[in-house]
Amino acid sequence: MSRFTLDQEIKLVQDEILLLGSLVEQAILNSVDALQRRDAIAAKNVYDNDRKINAKHHAIENHILITMATQSPLASDLRFLAAMLEVNTELERMGDYAKGISKVAIRLADTDYAIPIREIQQMADLATSMLHRSLGAFVAGDIVAAYSIPQEDNQVDELYESIYRKIIEGMIKNPDTISLGNQVMWVIHNLERTADRVTNICERVVFIVSGESVEFDGMEEEHQDE
């Protein structure tokens, strides 16, 4: 097979990954928006849209495997394709998180539980912005961005902690809110996990560019230990 076809295939898969990324990004933002507006219909849309994300995920997986099987990629090409296989999975999981958030949004739509929505929106904006830039770094092989984006995860964690405390305080003050508060915990947990998965994508970027395997989570924990 000619070099030209392999390059073309890789480019096609890359574009598909970016499209999937955009679907996931929007799903997360839409689910939080539905939560804010207590809009069960919008939440249901996000929930149903997850099928589209899953279908795209499978299509990309197939595309990568066929490319690997028929084009016999070597060295950096193989590394890039393998990394895309992994990023593809990460994105599918993030899609599931959005689905989880929309499920909560459906349940909370008819309640008047005081959701700390501003902080949650901040968290969602931060996580999706990290996702957006990490995929940009992925296709551009931008190792500088790959090292700097995971540092923003701390901000997400801080927001998580602060919302978590707020919800717990609410539960102590008013035990009736325990069940609903617990639902909101799921929302912030999902957003926090999204940001964690973004750091995984950044690890892949470092791997593709330098061939080194780094663990950004590990680095942070070390910092926290200090």
């Binding site: 499209l19 929007q26 995929l135 940009g136 296709v139």
Partner: peptide
Amino acid sequence: RSLVEVMRHYSLV
């Protein structure tokens, strides 16, 4: 570059 790479949004593609 491809549209998705520049605009990064599926609705626009």
